Amino acid sequence: MNKQDFKFFIGIDLSKRFFDVAIIDNDRTTSYVFENTRKGANAFIRLLKNQKIPLSNTLICMEHTGVYGKILITKLVEKQASFCVEMPIQITKSIGVVRGKSDRVDAKRIAIYASKNHKELELYRPMPEILEKVKILLKIRRKLVNTRADVNKYPNELELFSPELGKLAKRNLKKINKNLNDEINRIEAEIKKLVLSDDKLNKTVGLVTSVTGIGQITALHFTIFTNFFTRYDNPKQLACYSGVVPFEYTSGESIHRKSRVHPMANRTLKKHLHMSALAAINHDPDIRTYFLRKVEEGKNKMLIVNNVRNKLVHRICAVVKRQKPYVKTIS
């Protein structure tokens, strides 16, 4: 972010139907409410113009609320406004102990958060349309895969204790399973078509999947969550975001707990990295040798798997930075 001195700080609390706005001008704070529609977004921009609040020296901050922020974010990008979209827990933790809650108060707290931390905040960078499309399809695919798993969970358990009843359940779910499999295959074909239609995305996915153990779906998730690997300066930051970096937990002489990964991480990336690590252990000679050596040394297997996940993140970042596919070492 440019370390410019913003004169105005605006906090926005978004909900499905409305968004509350708090504007800090020196020590004065004013509050407004708009409909969360295109009409409301236009009214917000008009208000700033009428109040003589130029977007050029105004920082707008809002919480990440998924689809609820789409309309307003699109308008702010169109107007080339300086704004940031922060995770709610980041704002909540920075505020400290609070009493009471309302949308109006939350908007004011977000504005105060922006005014205090503006030099460290990262300005919003819009995601390319191709990534937005792939992101939607991946989300649909994930829901279909989860539905398929839920549908098959009961008959699989039933078959363990009553084979005949289990077969009956599976027979009646056969058509549903076929439809789910067909839809998943169709979505994956649509994703593949989108990847091939964009040179940059196709090249990035090709580089990432050159790392043994990383499949196309995992590569796409990394590309989307990092916005073409532009959100993180080094592999350690990305590894931390992916939930594979253990943190020390000690205090004085009385508290000495094992180092653990923090629960506040991207769980989707962590899950995909876990499956990739298991694949790498089976198919990458170097990683398999490393895994077996550590097992012989008596290391905890989950700790070793986590180390492999960390290695994969570093390899992914290396191939993207060098723009060259990963090459296995021949021993």
Rank of each mutant, 00 (worst) to 15 (best):
Asp20Leu: 07
Asp20His: 12
Thr58Trp: 00
Ser82Met: 06
Tyr32Ile: 00
Phe19Gly: 02
Phe18Met: 11
Ile71Leu: 07
Arg109Gln: 03
Pro126Leu: 06
Lys116Ser: 01
Ile89Asn: 04
Ser82Ala: 11
Arg17Val: 13
Phe34Pro: 01
Gly40Lys: 03
Tyr68Ser: 07
Cys84Leu: 07
Ala111His: 05
Arg99Asp: 02
Ser15His: 04
Ala43Gln: 14
Lys75Thr: 09
Val77Asp: 09
Val85Glu: 03
Ile73Pro: 08
Ser31Arg: 15
Ser56Phe: 02
His118Trp: 15
Ile95Asn: 00
Glu122Arg: 15
Thr58Gln: 02
Cys61Ile: 01
Pro88Ala: 06
Ile12Ala: 03
Tyr113Glu: 09
Val105Ile: 14
Lys70Tyr: 12
Gln80Pro: 07
Pro126Val: 01
Leu55Cys: 12
Ser31Asp: 12
Asp25Gln: 15
Tyr113Phe: 14
Leu48Ala: 08
Glu86Pro: 14
Asp20Ser: 14
Gln90Phe: 10
Met62Ala: 02
Phe34His: 01
Ser94Cys: 08
Ala43Trp: 12
Leu47Asn: 03
Ala43Lys: 11
Gly96His: 02
Ile91Arg: 00
Leu76Trp: 00
Arg104Ala: 12
Asp103Asn: 04
Ile89Pro: 02
Lys52Ser: 14
Lys75Val: 10
Gly40Met: 05
Asn50Ser: 13
Thr29Phe: 01
Lys52Gln: 14
Lys101Gly: 13
Val21Ala: 07
Val97His: 11
Val33Asp: 05
Cys84Tyr: 05
Pro88Asn: 00
Ile24Leu: 15
Leu55Phe: 11
Leu14Met: 11
Tyr68Gly: 11
Arg99Leu: 05
Phe83Asn: 01
Ile73Cys: 10
Phe83Ile: 03
Ala41Ser: 09
Glu63Asp: 08
Ser56Arg: 09
Thr65Ser: 10
Gly66Leu: 01
Val98Cys: 09
Ala114Leu: 08
Phe19Glu: 06
Lys116Ala: 09
Asn117Ser: 08
Leu72Tyr: 00
Leu123Pro: 11
Glu122Gly: 08
Leu76Thr: 06
Asn117Pro: 05
Met62Cys: 08
Arg125Gly: 11
Arg38Gln: 13
Arg125Thr: 14
Ile60Leu: 02
Met62Lys: 08
Ile23Thr: 02
Ala43Arg: 10
Gln80Ala: 03
Val33Ala: 12
His64Lys: 04
Tyr113Cys: 00
Val98Lys: 08
Arg17Leu: 12
Ile24Glu: 09
Thr65His: 02
Asn57His: 13
Met62Tyr: 02
Lys93Met: 14
Thr58Lys: 04
Lys101Leu: 15
Arg38Glu: 14
Gln80Glu: 11
Ser115Asp: 09
Asp27Ser: 13
Ile45Leu: 13
Ser31Tyr: 15
Ser102Gln: 13
Arg46Cys: 10
Lys119Pro: 06
Thr92Cys: 15
